[in-house]
Design a protein around this nucleic acid. Structure first.
Ligand SMILES: NC(=O)c1ccc[n+]([C@@H]2O[C@H](COP(=O)([O-])OP(=O)(O)OC[C@H]3O[C@@H](n4cnc5c(N)ncnc54)[C@H](O)[C@@H]3O)[C@@H](O)[C@H]2O)c1
Ligand SMILES: NC(=O)c1ccc[n+]([C@@H]2O[C@H](COP(=O)([O-])OP(=O)(O)OC[C@H]3O[C@@H](n4cnc5c(N)ncnc54)[C@H](O)[C@@H]3O)[C@@H](O)[C@H]2O)c1
Lengths: 251, 251
DNA sequence: ATGTCTTTGTGAACGCGTGCACAAAGATGG
DNA sequence: CCATCTTTGTGCACGCGTTCACAAAGACAT
């Protein structure tokens, strides 16, 4: 999960649970595939299978949007595609700026799936003067100096940060000051933003670490290969009478 | 959150809640930064602020690992770094294969943060014969034919999929058959895997759509460009007898 | 030792998310 | 028009995760 909004007490935005919102794109993808195959209707069971979720959950999710199904038949694919698209705000165009055109930023700029659903790369921005003017994915990179102007001129409200970690917060601050209210952050940093600004993060490193955790478990508890000594002896390891440090469970 | 394991009823692995596991890398990152600044101890309050979480939550998280703090003082930074690293399985080396060396795959291969925490790129694999032998990030790309052999020879258990969506499931199947038990999937597809295999996904498109949803809300309910009715249909917004707005998706 | 002050560790309450199970809606066929 | 059959929409219960609030643990000064 590379995800995470900035703290907000689960602001059930307008009655639609956050968990549901996160699944809508999943349903939409499955529905789009069905639509391309000209399938007219789907049952919650079929669609749920395609999206990899529980069918009851799917039905409940849709119930938050309204009752768009027909009992005994299922859901009208085209109609549902439209409803979900509208709910997600995909019926309008969202200009996006990408800041930090390095390895990752360039890959993102080249990513086709970006534009495929209403997200248009309005500009590529980098602090490196050498990059300025150089085209990436057919779009000339612009210098950071232009950041505020670009955002204002294009009415951009979504920004993607793909700069090194150290530059992320400053860049974020500038984006927010320039009017950006939604940020997708790829840098391994906790961004702090004012209320009203949404931040989601994608963190490869965290994902791998979570996988490693489960992998370690699967590998069997006792197979601990590390005999490595503790880097620093716990200074409080002598915990008086009750003596404790839970035996650092090696098993 | 661009994340999501394959369905498993929240298998509280060994007493540690999944939500806690997902935060451990966050704490570890903050702690590592403190360690580099030679800070000896931190209070839950300080560390929580650095990690962007609630301090009570942090303390409870740590309590699952054991009681490593000292009341009145806080936590020993070095010791905690070690404990969390061990818990996450980062005291050992995890060889990783990346399959699909295109825009994204190449960026991942070039990503420094990859190796920085025990994850070693064991091999880059692509189906394109033209790519074979070509070095990316200093590592020669190998052809898919070698996939099984590579995994076996290197004892790889973690695989990263960065192929086009259509190739993801077949590639996944081969990885699993070859012995991979943890997969990080960047392709926009729902992968189906046997029990015992963990899948986490990173989906840029979903993240953007979630941001768009909130952005639309922020933009003011009425200011939307779509001719649609009220953004929120309380529920009775039934589809008319003649309704069925065909309205093909504009994207 | 004793008292004070800081900070942990956790009991308890609460809210969200999930999934079961079923009544009701509606299609379909006779 | 009625019976039957399919599938939705949702009430309900349960468990996970979050947060508050506080007792107790321990450091530190006297
Ligand atoms: N490459 C990956 O696969 C990958 C994966 C996960 C996370 N990340 C993270 O994404 C970020 C970018 O990674 P990368 O591999 O593309 O790094 P990179 O060094 O290749 O690119 C960074 C780019 O940001 C630009 N930049 C630096 N400071 C800037 C500023 N203040 N304003 C605008 N641009 C600035 C640099 O000129 C450079 O072009 C890093 O934080 C990295 O940790 C990368
Ligand atoms: N580029 C991005 O920023 C980005 C962002 C999010 C998601 N994605 C997803 O990541 C995936 C890769 O994106 P990309 O932009 O790198 O695409 P790409 O076309 O540049 O690269 C895909 C690579 O996979 C290889 N490939 C195809 N079939 C294969 C197979 N069966 N086995 C091994 N390799 C195979 C191709 O030869 C190619 O090198 C896509 O599914 C895309 O939707 C990309």
């Amino acid at each position: 999960m590379a995800t995470g909004r900035t703290h907000r007490p689960a602001t059930r935005s307008r009655g639609i649970p956050e968990a549901t919102v996160a699944r809508l794109p999943l349903y939409l993808r499955a529905l789009t595939a069905l639509s391309e195959r000209s399938v007219p209707t789907v049952s919650s069971e079929e669609l749920a299978a395609a999206a990899g979720v529980n069918s009851a959950k799917l039905r409940k999710d849709f119930s938050y949007l309204g009752s768009y199904g027909t009992r005994g038949v299922g859901y009208d694919v085209e109609y549902l595609v439209y409803q979900i698209s509208r709910e997600l705000g995909l019926t309008q165009d969202w200009p996006v700026v990408i800041v930090g055109i390095g390895n990752l930023g360039a890959a993102l700029a080249n990513y086709g799936g970006f534009a495929s659903r209403g997200f248009r790369v309005a500009a590529l921005i980098d602090a490196d003067p050498a990059m300025a003017g150089k085209p990436v994915a057919g779009i000339p990179v612009q210098h950071s100096d232009q950041l505020e102007k670009i955002i204002e001129d294009n009415g951009v409200s979504i920004g993607v940060i793909a700069t090194p970690a150290g530059a992320a917060q400053p860049v974020c601050d500038r984006l927010v000051a320039a009017g950006i209210t939604s940020i997708l952050n790829f840098a391994p940093t906790v961004l702090s933003v004012p209320d009203g600004v949404d931040v989601r993060k994608v963190d490869l490193s965290i994902e791998l670490q979570i996988l490693a955790f489960h992998e370690q478990r699967k590998a069997g508890e006792g197979a601990a290969a590390d005999a490595g000594a503790v880097p620093l002896a716990p200074k409080a390891s002598r915990k008086g009478p009750d003596g404790d440090v839970p035996a650092v469970m090696p098993a």
